[in-house]
């Protein structure tokens, strides 16, 4: 049996989905997981970093704006730059854009109200380290819970990320159609999640960790974690590194 993948879950003051991510990694998927304290610039040799949901620093000032200055974020940036997989969920996505690891910003929802509900998202790029367990165009049911998830970027950036295949997920109708009605927050292009150019950093507003425990009835979120596990395990297999990188790099640009 292969040794488990080691997930590092960053705990900022105000993180509140840290335990949920931990629960999924350890109890649901049987992997290893540790918490990474925001004041410690030490990633404890993890294979994957998760920036969990919540309200880091109360989201006072602007969501994610203060968290990016935490000591741990310098290490997370270094880790990402060296190709390590980083998953930012909800507030984690907001922190990644504030830290400049992903392009664009997350504005207040168009409704100006917090929204918590199950939504449908379509897998736009099944070749990222976070989506290989999904089929292209597959529709996942995963909940959102945010007040500021309205993805926005300037025209040129949108054009670039669309061209590069950096849009990982889009909000859609149950059948996969991209419609205005299925967009819960006003995001440009119904964007629900994006990756960086290199493909190793994913930010998404929906919460895959909330759709992973079979006891709660929805399990589509497991596919995001399963993809990461597969990615990490294949990467440490000798000879597989280049192969995976080649696949991700090429097929990522559809």
């Amino acid at each position: 049996m292969q040794s488990p993948v080691r997930f590092g879950i960053v705990v900022f003051p105000g993180s509140n989905c840290d335990h949920d991510a931990y629960h999924v990694c350890r109890k649901v998927l049987g992997q290893d997981a540790v918490f990474l304290w925001h004041k410690d610039p030490d990633l404890k040799d993890v294979d994957v970093v998760i920036l969990p949901g919540g309200f880091s620093y109360g989201d006072y000032l602007r969501c994610g704006a203060i968290a990016r200055f935490s000591p741990v974020m310098r290490e997370v940036t270094r880790f990402a730059e060296s190709g390590g997989p980083v998953l930012g969920i909800c507030n984690g996505f907001q922190i990644l854009v504030e830290a400049g690891l992903l392009p664009g910003v997350l504005l207040r929802n168009a409704s100006l109200r917090f929204a918590c509900k199950n939504v449908h998202i379509r897998v736009e790029n099944p070749f990222t380290p976070f989506t290989t367990a999904c089929a292209a165009g597959e529709v996942l049911t995963i909940p959102i819970a945010h007040g500021e998830g309205n993805y926005f970027a300037d025209e040129e950036t949108i054009h670039r990320i669309e061209e590069n295949g950096q849009v990982a997920f889009r909000y859609c109708a149950p059948g996969g159609e991209i419609t205005a009605d299925s967009n819960p927050n006003g995001s440009l292009g119904n964007i629900a999640g994006i990756i960086n150019e290199r493909g190793n950093v994913l930010g998404m507003m929906p919460h895959p960790e909330r759709a992973a425990d079979p006891l709660l009835g929805f399990t589509d979120g497991q596919k995001v974690f399963a993809s990461i596990i597969e990615h990490v395990l294949s990467r440490v297999t000798p000879g597989a590194v280049e192969e995976v990188a080649a696949v991700t790099g090429e097929k990522g640009r559809r």
């Binding site: 509140n16 989905c17 335990h19 949920d20 629960h23 999924v24 949901g53 109200r113 917090f114 929204a115 918590c116 509900k117 909940p143 819970a145 919460h207 960790e209 909330r210 992973a212 425990d213 006891l215 709660l216 009835g217």
Partner: peptide, 14 residues
């Protein structure tokens, strides 16, 4: 009303 509340955090709401 309830969609403005986070009813799922802590992933224990069955």
């Amino acid at each position: 009303v309830y969609e403005q509340y986070d009813s799922m955090v802590r992933t224990n709401n069955v």
